[in-house]
Amino acid sequence: MNGPLSRRNFLRTGLATFCATLIGTHAEKTAARDFEGYHQSKGVLVDLTRCIGCRSCEAACNKEQGLPPPETGFDDPSVFQLDEHGQPRRPDDRAYTVVNRYETEFADHPLFRKIQCNHCLEPACLTACFVNAYTKTPEGAVIYDADVCVGCRTCMIACPFSIPAFKYSSAFEPRIMKCIFCYDTRLVNGLPPACVEACPTEALTFGERETLLRIGRKRIRERPNRYVDHVYGEHEAGGTAWLYLSGVPHDEVGFDMDVPKQPIITYVKDFLAIVPMVLTIWPALFAGFHLLASREQKTIETNHASQEDSHESTGQ
């Protein structure tokens, strides 16, 4: 057992490599978790107490993004009624944003909420996409590249807000449809998205996310009776570029309060960190075990054979 690969040396090296890998992946993981979004990235603060449900944002989005005309006009209030399944509207391949109406016991008038992509700081759609069709730009937008999309629709399942929609009418040229923060036409030029510019009551405020958080907290602090003490999107899904102030508890106006407070990728990071370790260390480890085991067997066999030989020679 004094060959170049003794059992003791093998185990020692193996253990050292194992520990090094563990430490390495742990350090990497911690660094990634601390990502708090790009510096000076933009966002939108939505103040639900200001929204009057005029749907100007929907009309502006439709025009800016060249989407097909709506089934009924943007001044038709019948869209606020729930569908046959009792569900409010959702963004789809014909509308990147929709405004829904909510009746609650907390207010004597209907409340409105605009829905669109929240442009997460660490987007689940992006992490789920295996062809990298999604990009989180330093400006804050989560954009999508139809040229590389294979139409697997994993992003639709990954998104905690159920935002990406699939253009089923062009299934052979797969295309995900979602709000892109007017990235190419406006955001890169420092302009607010079309919906923000159209909002008559400035229920939508455009700016740097950090500033928007300060504005949101300031509004809550100065008018505590007007707002609930929560900025939705500050921590939800690890933080989103779009933030929401509300006068009633957020779940009363359709917000999902069960969305985790950390990025969705955190839930798979631990598992994903093991994959390269398994792929690189396990083959070497088990090959080593096999070699050792078969070598011992061979030694026993050789010893056995030599003993038999010596028996035979003494017998003679």
Binding site: G190, C199, T211, K218
Partner: peptide
């Protein structure tokens, strides 16, 4: 939401960071 106004508001010592635009003020 002009670029220079957004830059001014990023100054954390500024108090008036939440003055609405003309359209918003009217409505």
């Amino acid at each position: 939401f002009a670029v220079e106004l957004i830059e001014q508001k990023a100054n954390s010592t500024r108090y008036h960071i939440d003055i609405v635009g003309l359209q918003g003020a009217y409505h």
